[in-house]
Structure formats: structure tokens, C-alpha cells
């Protein structure tokens, strides 16, 4: 994807942020996955004893990690692992489909690493998983299959391996 197309996507993202009703219009006409049932796993123990992890689709990654692919117009279904003891100042964002100026200034806005640590210090949660996971939330076409059948199940298996009881997820 050329510079002009990326600029166009970034401009649209800013407009969508300014005018939320446009997102409603998008939701009505977009070819979104429509589900009729919902899987449900009740929490197995009190929150204060649970190990929690964070997941975002905000395109967050460390400076040293490979950026998400902005050239593919169907998006990028891969993910990045982020160590949970990372300093948020080491994080950056690659995502042309939302206005991430504020999130770049404070990554806690999309991946609340410091607030989660505060809840741990307050004893409101039992532990924090060793790693968080970040996707780029603009996934279309056959990349949805990759997400559903490969990358999201990989993250689920990693969370189970980490002994995580519950996850908090943010869209952008």
C-alpha cells in the first residue's frame, strides 16, 4: 500500500474518532461476523485470587518488534507478545485505522499496564500474567480465518500455559 493510501486510511481514522455516529453507519453496512450465541466461562475463583492478562487490538508493540503490516489492505492477523514488566514508554503503535495519537502519548489508554499493577498492589487481583498480547484490529477477508484458526487459539493456549484465569480486552 502506497503512502497516499496509508494517509487516506489515517485521515478516515481521525474522522471516525471525531464523529462516532459514522461508526454506527459503518457497523450497519460492514460485512462483520454476526454471531447468534455466546461462549461463556464463569470465573472459577474470587478476582483477588485470579491471575489476569491484558489483550488489545490497538496495534501496540515494542520498538524492537516487527511493526504490524500496513501494506496489506486486509490487515494483519499476527500478534506481538509484550512482557508484563515492560515500561510503557518502550511501547509504540502501528495501526492506520484509528487515531492513536492519545494512545501513543499514553499506551495505558489501550493497554492498561500501570492501572493493572495498581490493582495488584491494592490486592484487588491475585497476580499478573507474565505477558500481554497485542493484535492489530483491522482484519478482513481470509485473515479472519487465520485469526480464528491460528493466531487467537495460539494466544489462548499461551494464556492457559501462563496460568491466566481471566483476560481484559480492549478494542480501539
Amino acid at each position: 500500500m502506497g503512502k497516499f493510501k496509508r494517509l487516506k486510511n489515517q485521515t478516515f481514522a481521525k474522522v471516525y474518532t471525531k464523529i462516532p455516529s459514522l461508526v454506527d453507519l459503518y457497523a450497519k453496512q460492514a460485512d462483520l461476523v454476526v454471531n447468534t450465541t455466546t461462549p461463556f466461562t464463569p470465573l472459577k475463583k474470587p478476582l483477588e485470587k485470579c491471575r489476569i492478562s491484558l489483550i488489545t487490538t490497538g496495534g501496540v508493540h515494542t520498538e524492537s518488534q516487527k511493526p504490524f503490516d500496513m501494506a496489506d489492505k486486509k490487515g494483519d492477523p499476527s500478534y506481538r507478545e509484550i512482557s508484563s514488566d515492560i515500561d510503557v514508554e518502550q511501547l509504540t503503535i502501528t495501526h492506520d485505522y484509528y487515531n492513536h495519537a492519545d494512545a501513543l502519548a499514553d499506551p495505558n489508554l489501550v493497554l492498561p499496564i500501570d492501572p493493572l499493577s495498581e490493582l495488584l498492589q491494592q490486592g484487588k487481583i491475585g497476580a499478573i500474567g507474565p505477558r500481554f498480547f497485542s493484535f492489530m484490529g483491522h482484519i478482513m477477508g481470509d485473515h479472519i480465518k487465520t485469526l480464528n484458526q491460528e493466531t487467537a487459539p495460539e494466544v489462548a493456549a499461551a494464556l492457559i500455559g501462563d496460568g491466566v484465569d481471566a483476560a481484559f480486552l480492549t478494542p480501539t
Partner: peptide, 14 residues
């Protein structure tokens, strides 16, 4: 979609 997959595999999510 990611949230649903985690929940299907036994992780509580919000």
C-alpha cells in the same frame, strides 16, 4: 472474535 475464542477455551474474559 478473540474474546470468544479465549472464552471457548476456558478463560474468563471481559
Amino acid at each position: 472474535l478473540i474474546q470468544r475464542i479465549l472464552e471457548e477455551r476456558g478463560i474468563s474474559t471481559v
